[in-house]
Design a protein around this nucleic acid. Sequence first.
DNA 1: GAAAATATAGGTCGAATGACCTAGATAATC
DNA 2: GATTATCTAGGTCATTCGACCTATATTTTC
Lengths: 223, 223
Amino acid sequence: MPRAPRRKLPSAKPREGTAVHAKGTERVESILDAATDTLIEDGHAGLTLRRVAQRAGLSVGNLQYYFPAKQDVVRALLARYLEVASRRVRSRVEEGGRAPVERLRRALEALLEDQESPRHCQLFAELWALAGRDAMVSDALTVFYAGFRAGIVELLRELAPGLAPSRLERRAALVVAFLEGLSLFRGGGTLRAASVPGLEQELRAVLEEVLEGVPRAGARPRD
Amino acid sequence: MPRAPRRKLPSAKPREGTAVHAKGTERVESILDAATDTLIEDGHAGLTLRRVAQRAGLSVGNLQYYFPAKQDVVRALLARYLEVASRRVRSRVEEGGRAPVERLRRALEALLEDQESPRHCQLFAELWALAGRDAMVSDALTVFYAGFRAGIVELLRELAPGLAPSRLERRAALVVAFLEGLSLFRGGGTLRAASVPGLEQELRAVLEEVLEGVPRAGARPRD
DNA sequence: GAAAATATAGGTCGAATGACCTAGATAATC
DNA sequence: GATTATCTAGGTCATTCGACCTATATTTTC
């Protein structure tokens, strides 16, 4: 943690991750790639402009031409990654046009597959920690999880059309929480070493068990 | 990230978090308190010897009398925190001597209560991120979660005595994963802002639903 | 082809860091 | 009272950091 930013007094460089020419756009992409890798491998504290610049193969000065401050890099990297991840969730949800139960089953299976990536899991672990300290990260994740939930809601709606929208939203939130909890111990999660052999089959078995008896309305709670 | 540690060549201070007199023990405790708070508030990168010393109200030299290196502070603080948290889980599990289902219900309720603490949740978010990069942290968490799981296993065993130990272990792992996932969005979690109103009641409702039909053996999978 | 926009390299600066050290003061214990 | 434990206050050192700046190439655009 180097210094107190004496920030933006005159500032002649209004650029913020946007480029006009093709070459610039390409540069921005490679910068964000490098920044993402660095964030994943070395954490937020290890994400330094110098390291990113070196990894992306350009000078620090050049990097700062596109992203004047570190915060700008993080912001852009986050926006890009979460946007892609969101689209991924949507596409998972829309996958296959079968019966409701089957659709849900396939969507969950696909979401679980995404957790195989250690990169992805480590990134999110990093973001969860950051969210408690950085409002920008917290906001970005809030938007992301709202989209995630919405995708699950769509799936659940088909299964239980009678459920009130607010209750669907809540059930979806529980599903998301479970999935994120699993991402810690499963596949590429940072705690896969703290897991248990055979977790996968058990998870599938429980999923089947729940899905078989799923279209029950449940006792109506005070809304 | 300051410098490459030129580490331990002669080293005349073999102390490592242990004190002889009462005053020293007290000091160590206050150091670990300060270090824990700093880790929670500023993250692993913000955990600097200077900051910890200032917070604990002593000199850096004195801090290093007890903990020669930063790593030693982290190790000790982790051991202490996870030990306390482990005991807490056990006591939660042993709480109340009622019927199996009731015991499980109460234990889960107690575990959920622990998630109300933002400090606790932020610390764990930090540790999950760290675990991917620091084997010491990963190992400590692995031990912790093994204990956590063991506690849940005890509870589940009463409910489903027929289940094989390995399957109990796996079910417990799923419960732990769900709980940790919830800790992100519930109570003091770093993503409480990304949650949904009424999550609590819904969670209780689902819990009840599951607990009611719980002593079913489930289809025997290939073990 | 000239003017303007864009791209890039290299360097400076103040601030902060972890590890280490010295020299001495104060307190507890035997 | 001597021994050990605890503690303070300061400083050194090599290193890293983010922000900032200037000078120069390279492209676009007109």
